[in-house]
Amino acid sequence: MEIINYFVDLAGSFPKLFNQLPGAAAQGLIWGIMAIGVYITYRILEVSDLTVDGSIATGGAVAAMLIINGWSFWAAMAVAFLAGMLAGLVTGVFHTTMGIPAILSGILTQLALYSINLKIMLNKANTAVSVNKYTLLVSSRNVRALTLNNPMIPLIIVTILLVIFMYWFFNTEYGCSLRATGANQAMSRAQGINTELNKVVGLMFSNGIVALAGALLTQYQGYSDVNMGRGAIVIGLAAVIIGEVVFGKFKPFRGIAGKLLAVSLGAIIYYLVIQVVIWMGLNTNDLKMLTALVVAMFLAFPHWKGKLAARKAAREAMNGGNGHA
């Protein structure tokens, strides 16, 4: 009986879900930009960089403080980007010059950034940037409006510009050397590529984009919070993986531009699914646990697939005897 009631209620509250989906899509667009930053380190450089949990909040803090001090949102976003690059530089120096494993380097920077982000916001845990008082590029207020000031329009434009820029950059001579650094370091050095420098540049570039996403998120939600980056890396990874799983099979999503678009769409899917799950009654406090479990499953998938294939090959070799191994 109870279960029937649950579904009746759910059906009744369908308009409520419908009302929330545009907001989820806009959030997905912002986190998609963040996930494109994660893609640079995770997929192109093949390092897992945890700096992003801190640098997204740095981007948000910098943008909030500059905007309330009278800067234009464009200038604030540019400075946020630079601040993110600086965070990436620190991780890069930890990793290359000081020889600390990449994952630990990111954790160290992320921890330090917590203090720095508080300092940026003058020792407050959050800073409001109300769309009533300041001119902002995006605001959640207009997310259901069918007008030109709907935040999804600038977010889509920023995403497309970013994808075009990345497509160009990773096809330049220097961009190719960055990709080579991630693909094969020994080979890269043999071809005269300074792999250590490239790793630092890649980390800077990645965190710059992540901080830019932080600046957008701050404007969108109307405040910056020192904790806004908690678990950001997991959301970024979720977007990358969902994008690959859902769109990887299709040809238009094979090139660099296509893969990045898939990442952005992955983030949108992630937020839409989360919204549906919350609508179905999930306690929002359990959200991070659910996300972590889902990402863990997706990360385990290729590993299990490889094991299964190996077992199958072994079985065939035993049964057949003359099979081609």
Binding site: T172, E173, Q191
Partner: peptide, 12 residues
């Protein structure tokens, strides 16, 4: 491009 600077010109 071994031994040459890697610029922002097209890679191939």
């Amino acid at each position: 491009r071994r031994g040459k600077p890697r610029t922002l010109r097209w890679g191939v």
